[in-house]
Structure formats: structure tokens, C-alpha cells
């Protein structure tokens, strides 16, 4: 479970986060939906303790990230954007490296790596160096890195960006799989179909603030629109109206 309460963060002249609060529950896929520059990545980075909020706090399984960053991060897996692959390592080495950094012993890390490679069907590329990988292959490697240590919470930053249909489907299947195993999945996106198809809960963000929270259908009902996209526009537009 990831809980964010009253987060505020100013970066330069921009109020990136503005009293942001939400909860992402275990066994659910939570989508962080917002236009470019809404503060999605800033919010995720704050959850990881990479950015210090001016006010408010982020908790993972009840552990305050600011107080016990190591303990909190132990419960997290991150699928970053951009991926941050090491081009000179093979996926097997790369995944195992991060498994060990997440606290697995050398032996466990090796085992977990083999399992996740099998799970994501990475065998054909697992011992080739990452240099020259396609976007889909990169995505799979990064995803394997995020879930290799079986964290209870998985955070994905714009996971479907630049992926083809096959890769997107694979990603979707894995996220649903994780959800069914009781993991808490939180991802940011600005792609409506994806959010509509996957999410149990959608958090609509704009200008560092939560505009609306609910399941896709709830959001549609709330705004009186047929599709999530229409609802989204309505929500953002309303927000801009208020801000003006």
C-alpha cells in the first residue's frame, strides 16, 4: 500500500506538487493520470525519496520514506522512465545486480533472476548485451528489474511509452497478474485506453493537485460523460476553470 498525504513541492518557480493526497491499495492497479507537466513523475520520485517534499509525507506499507528510506524502498520496485539500462551488461547481469541491491542474497538473486527471465520470456535475449535492444526488449528488461525481488509495491513511470501492441499487451498481462497476486501497482500515464482498460482506481492530476479519484466508470458517471477521455477533459477543463 502506498499512501501519500498533503505532499507539496516547489521546484524553481513551479509548484510541482500542491497538497497531493491519495492511497494506492494492495491488490489494485492505480493509475496516475494527468497531462504533461501535471507532476506525475515528481510525485513518483517523491515516493522514492529522490525528492524531498516541502510539506507532507509518503508512506509505503506504513513506513515513512523520509524517516526510513531503506526500509520503505525495500518494499518498492521501480520501472523508471527512461529505463536506465546498462548497455554493456546482459539482461541477466542487469536484473541480478538490482536484485542484489534490493537485498537478495547472491544465491537468491540468481534464482529470482532465472525465474523472472522465464516469466517474461526473455530467454532469447537474456545473455546478449543490452546495447542495440529494441524498445520492447528494453521495456521487458526494465520490468524484470522492477519485479525480480517480488516487491509488494510496484511503481511504473509511463510504462507503455513507445511500445508496440505486442509489448503493451504483455505489459498489461503482467500488471494484471501482479494485481491478482495481491501486489499494489501504481503507474503514471497519459494514455486513456490503457488506464481505462487496466485501472481499478484512477487518480486524475493537474497542476500538482488531485482533481478526481475513482474507478473509470465512476469518473464517467461523476462527469456525465460516456468515455474516460471525455471525463478527463471535463475534469481538467473544470480545474483550469477553477484555477482561472
Amino acid at each position: 500500500m502506498i499512501k501519500v498525504s498533503h505532499l507539496s513541492k516547489r521546484i524553481g518557480d513551479v509548484q510541482a506538487l500542491n497538497d497531493l493526497s491519495f492511497v494506492a491499495k494492495n491488490g489494485q492497479i492505480t493509475g496516475l493520470l494527468g497531462p504533461n507537466g501535471a507532476g506525475k513523475t515528481t510525485c513518483l520520485r517523491t515516493i522514492f525519496g529522490l525528492l524531498k517534499p516541502d510539506t507532507g509525507k509518503a508512506e509505503i506499507e506504513g513506513i515513512d520514506v523520509a524517516i526510513d528510506p531503506i526500509g520503505a524502498k525495500q518494499q518498492l520496485g521501480l520501472f523508471p522512465d527512461p529505463f536506465g539500462l546498462y548497455e554493456r551488461l546482459t539482461p541477466r547481469e542487469y536484473i541480478r545486480y538490482f536484485a542484489e541491491l534490493s537485498g537478495l542474497s547472491s544465491k537468491d538473486a540468481k534464482e529470482a533472476t532465472s525465474q523472472v527471465i522465464a516469466k517474461l520470456r526473455l530467454e532469447d535475449i537474456s545473455d546478449r548485451r543490452c546495447k542495440g535492444f529494441s524498445q520492447g526488449q528494453r521495456m521487458k528488461t526494465a520490468l524484470a528489474q522492477a519485479i525480480v525481488h517480488r516487491p509488494s509495491n510496484i511503481i511504473l513511470d509511463e510504462p507503455t511509452r513507445g511500445l508496440d501492441v505486442m509489448s503493451t499487451r504483455l505489459l498489461r498481462d503482467i500488471l494484471i497478474d501482479l494485481k491478482n497476486q495481491g501486489h499494489c501497482v501504481l503507474f503514471s500515464s497519459h494514455v486513456m485506453q490503457e488506464v481505462a482498460a487496466l485501472c481499478d482506481q484512477v487518480i486524475v492530476m493537474a497542476q500538482g493537485r488531485v482533481v478526481a479519484i475513482g474507478s473509470p466508470s465512476e469518473l464517467c458517471i461523476q462527469t456525465g460523460k460516456d468515455s474516460l477521455e471525455e471525463a478527463f477533459i471535463q475534469l481538467i477543463g473544470t480545474d483550469e476553470g477553477i484555477a482561472a
Binding site: 520520485r45 536506465g84 541491491l101 534490493s102
Partner: peptide
């Protein structure tokens, strides 16, 4: 950033 997101 990815490295620093890990528990170390």
C-alpha cells in the same frame, strides 16, 4: 536515479 531508488 534508478540506482538511488533502491534500498541502499
Amino acid at each position: 536515479a534508478l540506482l538511488l531508488s533502491h534500498p541502499l
